[in-house]
């Protein structure tokens, strides 16, 4: 059961990672005349990703919270026994960053509503960067931790 949930959590995280990265790149490194793969990547309509990012973040966080209960019993105890403090530390940051990210979602959603306000462009860009950092951190840490314990072990 938890393995299935973990895989769904991972797949949703991939979708979220793609969406937030697309949006962050188009905000921080925009391209007005798209040419080639990178140019088109940089010129996506960033606004269209906002609702999907909010929904994906919420669903991924809920599934992560469910999987976390199993992690706490099965994985973390082993990491402590193996003195893997850095590994536990990066996971501690993951849980706190995820929680802080939840709190900015209403503001993120509001500032990405169309029509976009030019006055709040910096706030929009910073909120996107913050969420992008949280999503990348959590994705990489989750991936590494999954590798540490091993599938089905």
């Amino acid at each position: 059961m938890f393995t299935v949930l973990l895989i769904i959590h991972g797949l949703l995280a991939v979708a979220l990672l793609g969406a937030i990265t697309h949006q962050a790149v188009s905000v921080w490194w925009p391209e007005r005349k798209p040419a080639g793969f990178v140019g088109r990547y940089r010129s996506v309509p960033a606004t269209s990703y906002a609702n999907a990012i909010v929904v994906l973040y919420l669903v991924t966080a809920v599934l992560g919270a469910i999987v976390y209960t199993e992690y706490r019993v099965v994985v973390r105890v082993v990491l402590e026994q193996l003195d893997m403090w850095k590994t536990n530390g990066v996971f501690e940051l993951k849980e706190h960053f995820a929680a802080v990210g939840l709190g900015v979602l209403p503001a993120y959603w509001y500032y990405w509503r169309a029509p976009l306000s030019g006055e709040h462009a910096r706030t929009r860009a910073m909120l996107t960067a913050l969420l992008a950092f949280v999503v990348w951190w959590n994705f990489l840490v989750g991936h590494v931790l999954n590798n540490v314990r091993g599938f089905g072990s």
Binding site: V100, A107, H120
Partner: peptide, 16 residues
């Protein structure tokens, strides 16, 4: 409006 990202970023740094 920047309080919406500045405070969370500061809190993340404090957690580190």
């Amino acid at each position: 409006s920047g309080w919406s990202w500045a405070v969370p970023v500061a809190v993340m740094v404090v957690f580190c």
